[in-house]
Design a protein around this nucleic acid. Structure first.
Lengths: 405, 405
DNA sequence: TGCCTGAACGTAAGCGCTTGCGTCCAGTCA
DNA sequence: TGACTGGACGCAAGCGCTTACGTTCAGGCA
């Protein structure tokens, strides 16, 4: 068996209380003794049993991260960013994948969380009132990311404004038929994001005076395959769009695939904007709305750790709602609308250069979009350089070749 | 405070021992009593304190999943598939992100795992002998996926054969200059996969008699950005390739971006094969080697659960090494080599159709590649349909338009 | 010198369970 | 009717810690 605290105490010739105090850095032990105890503990390869110490102290030393998806980019990215924060704080990270209604019941009604964790991080999971009630009744800090919940601290973005960014960009390029590939607003495993992004999109179209056309909206399910289908639907309809805004990069990329199969060139025939700034978006030169996912993950984890350590300290921030900025990253999948678009035009020879020009209401963006490069060696590859624009600022130019599909 | 076992006992008018037995389904309790206890426990919203029960029973009820990356597709996919298996078995899933050398030391030398988990799932993490020693000394079941480790059960694929599949496909299409975008074989956070895939690639080239050319190998880092850079390097060299095999889809997609920027058409000018069957590979019609990642995740999790429940039962399978099959999925990024390739040819008008024809040694594949479709509604989208081929079987035809970039 | 003080340490009471073993008692059999 | 049996249950000893409180004792002060 592993060494226990008792063995360490015996070897050090002190009581187990002193060992505990020494190892936990509590006061009441002379520096010399503490040091000696620590040396012996290390020599024995001793480390306290978590269950014993949790039982005795009453603190779980664990946080739960609850997410509806693990495989989708947004979620794994949040997890990736949050993990080190918890680790740093000495907290174990218990992962909960909440999928269907059934597993949700297990997590919420049967208190799987109670006594097990001392904090909960909820990733983009919309909850019923009953579930929220359960969370509150746990009496432990709960932070959310991707969705704001009454009474809980959260880190989110303004999905409405972010979507407006994308839609406005397309409108300003002269597009009059801007389609939306939306997430499912009914899906119980998805949050308000699809609803808000659609709202942002619609508000821009209304302001533009082009009117809303239900025929311009199709549903993907936040996957590439769903995006591909949705694009297929859009172009099978009476009046196809000249531009597409997809609520996620994964759907946008799926749409790109469909467009290519249909022989439509991007951006010459159709412009496409995504949402997320997925790592592959840069590679594919997809114009997109960046929402700093890693940032969100890190921030919300820090928020949770703070709630945990501060206890009920300064009442401030009890339900702090952080909203992170988003920005449009213009790459190669968007261009000014063709004067008279014939959507039936099949793929023809293209010179590969998007016909970009100053859009109405132009303002120059300044902060260059960055393309992640971990490999620092020779860089003969012309990277896609986009422009990061504040809300409402519009595109003017871009460096780098655009897509030519 | 939450209800304790004592309160349940009091209300039920029995001893806490009986409550414990009733709730855990142990024998020694009359059915009537057990039922009554269960009802009362439920009424009180009681559930046993994990730390207390773990301390008393000595079982941790928790497994650790250790992975070097959380954000990369392969890893999050494995996690996604493994989680439900553990949940089903009533095991908590403790997530460990092992990044740099420093954090590795923490995980392995300081026994963060000891006393905390009763099983370990290691995802594609190569270990030093010392680290392996530590794992063995834990005396608990350890399973690995993505890499086979002496003395541990594992689920892997045959990376050499899988890579051969891709390389052979290109060679059979008539390509004589087949490049490799390789992962870093020196990276301590990566497993034998890059080494084996490179070996498979090289063996095919050697057999083909085209000889090995160091100028045909470049290093990505398993990211799209890395793949983009690597492709850039390859085409900046003296004798550019006519085909590229990338050791991951993410790198392949990055390479596609670079090729487009360089004005090279895929597959007319350059063929590209990836590795993984990433969800976006289907959307982009990337020819790739599918390695059934979800399968691997599920299988290895089941393996670990079995080791845990079987205890040291039938000695069989003590170090069972499962190897899952891989298959080539031919989509639109590969085509027969041009008779005389001028790699400097810039993008010209293309008819968008790959010049695919029967390759030498042809054999017809039968099992159709599947494109994940969760949305079951009208499907006007022409999905990419690839062919799943057993090892060494070669391409003949494919349905659906090919990429035209 | 006697007393007070506080740092340094020990004592022991839990924390909330699990489980081996002992007890009780309704049946069973001789 | 009494010894015997086994199912149903209670008792209590932990599991390995944390921590409130008690004890000891060297030093400082009047």
């Amino acid at each position: 068996m592993d060494a226990t605290i008792e063995e360490v105490a015996r070897r050090a010739g002190v009581s187990i209380a002193t060992v505990s105090r020494s190892l936990r850095g509590r006061e009441g032990v002379s520096p010399r003794t503490a040091e000696r105890v620590r040396a012996i503990a290390h020599e024995l390869g001793y480390s306290a049993s978590p269950s014993a110490s949790r039982l005795a102290s009453g603190r779980a030393g664990t946080v739960a991260v609850i997410m509806p998806f693990l495989g989708r980019w947004f979620f794994s990215e949040v997890l990736d960013a949050a993990e080190p924060v918890f680790r740093e704080a000495g907290l174990d990270l218990l992962l909960y994948h909440v999928g269907d209604r059934e597993s949700r019941r297990k997590y919420f009604s049967v208190d799987l969380l109670r006594k097990r964790v001392e904090g909960v991080l909820l990733v983009s999971l919309p909850l019923t009132d009953a579930e929220i009630e359960v969370l509150h009744s746990l009496g432990i800090p709960v932070c959310t990311v991707g969705v704001a919940l009454e009474g809980f601290r959260s880190v989110t973005i303004d999905d409405v404004s972010a979507a407006r960014l994308a839609a406005q960009h397309l409108v300003n390029l002269g597009h009059e038929r801007v389609a939306l590939i939306a997430g499912d607003t009914e899906d119980p495993t998805l949050c308000g994001a699809p609803r808000d992004r659609r709202a942002g999109y619609r508000s821009v179209l209304e302001e533009a005076g082009t009117g809303l056309d239900p025929g311009l909206e199709a549903r993907g399910d936040f996957t590439a395959a769903g995006g591909a289908m949705a694009a297929g639907e859009l172009f099978a309809r009476q009046h196809p769009p000249t531009a597409i805004f997809a609520e996620s990069d994964e759907m946008a990329i799926g749409a790109l695939g469909t467009l290519r199969r249909l022989g439509l060139r991007v951006p010459q025939d159709v412009s496409v904007v995504g949402f997320d700034d997925h790592p592959l978006a840069a590679a594919l030169e997809l114009t997109t709305v960046s929402q700093g996912v890693a940032d969100q993950g890190r921030r919300v984890a820090e928020q949770l750790v703070a709630s945990l350590t501060a206890g009920s300290g300064p009442g401030a921030g009890a339900s702090e709602q952080v909203q992170l900025p988003t920005r449009l990253i213009v790459r190669g999948t968007t261009a000014v609308a063709k004067p008279a678009a014939g959507p039936s035009a099949l793929a023809g020879a293209g010179d590969g250069k998007p016909r970009l020009g100053p859009a109405p209401g132009t303002r120059h963006g300044t902060a260059p979009g960055t393309v992640p490069r971990r490999n620092k060696e020779v860089a003969p590859t012309p990277g896609a350089v986009g422009l990061a624009l504040p809300i409402r600022a519009q595109v003017t130019t871009q460096k780098g070749r655009a897509v030519q599909q």
